[in-house]
Design a protein around this nucleic acid. Structure first.
Lengths: 137, 137
DNA sequence: GGCGGGCTACTCGGATAGTGTGTGTCCGAGTTATGGCGG
DNA sequence: CCGCCATAACTCGGACACACACTATCCGAGTAGCCCGCC
């Protein structure tokens, strides 16, 4: 029970894209280099993000990816669900029916987490990232 | 990324124990019968709960398990961590150091969920369970 | 009637497969910018 | 100088192998209550 590595890669990739000026198209090679991941594997993750509508892909030479909408409109929850799916963490009370009290508690706890992840956007964190970089200098 | 079935079994088993009067010793056979799980597998889960100090085991004839402390002192988080371990859901920012902003957000979201799970005790839910049973009659 | 030994029911723990998901690679197909060549 | 074409760079998508955790089962060992027989 933990987040897949793909989610980690996806979050860092999105953060990298969000810190770029003027939202340019960035190739997979460059994205992969910053995380020590194979470009082919990262492209699979980016495919998921594309299907989920978080990034746009551009084929051909000088192609690559860029954010498909404003970085402040992309929450952590969006990215996580794009990779992990939006299936609930807890399931299996089917035999006990929808009135299972345990399921209710688990779903509520999951909701608490998702509410926070929905609040935080990749743009916010990108700004924080810029801030700390300036402080270092 | 989801809770293991073992966690589901553990929660239902704990709830069943909590709804018993006077906290008697209950055998694995009886516990397994209510969840349609093999007794041998359920015993492995109960072993974890025992090591975590949530239940006590009694060997020999008429043996079994019972809660080792007051049901209102046993939170959902206790049970979940007994089965899933207390490792964080999100990990892998080691290369980025402890100052990784993404990791901070993820850990905070996890904390939100755990806070709620720590609040809810198996005793509370057991009482709710009794309540709804009375209303049905 | 009291005591002891064997029996039974039960848990404990390790060993062992099967299975599904995540992880990662490889390759062919399609797409687009770029540069060179000929008109 | 302009347009066409080959080439290179790049993404896209599927197919495929591998590793690891979860799931589940089986079996031997240990333990405690119970019953029966012997003294």
């Amino acid at each position: 029970m933990n987040y897949s590595k793909g989610t980690n890669y996806a979050l860092h990739t999105m953060l990298y894209l969000a810190t770029q000026k003027d939202n340019p198209v960035v190739g997979v090679q460059e994205l992969a280099k910053h995380q020590l991941v194979s470009p082919t594997y990262l492209s699979k993750i980016l495919t998921k993000l594309t299907k989920y509508g978080l990034v746009e892909s551009y084929s051909g030479a000088q192609g690559g990816y860029r954010l498909s909408r404003d970085k402040y409109e992309i929450s952590f929850l969006n990215i996580i669900q794009a990779i992990e799916g939006n299936t609930p963490l807890f399931k299996g009370c089917d035999s006990n029916g929808p009135g299972c009290l345990i399921e209710a508690v688990m779903k509520e706890s999951e909701k608490k987490m998702e509410e926070y992840l929905q609040l935080r956007t990749i743009g916010d964190v990108a700004d924080q990232h810029e801030q700390t970089k300036l402080e270092d200098e």
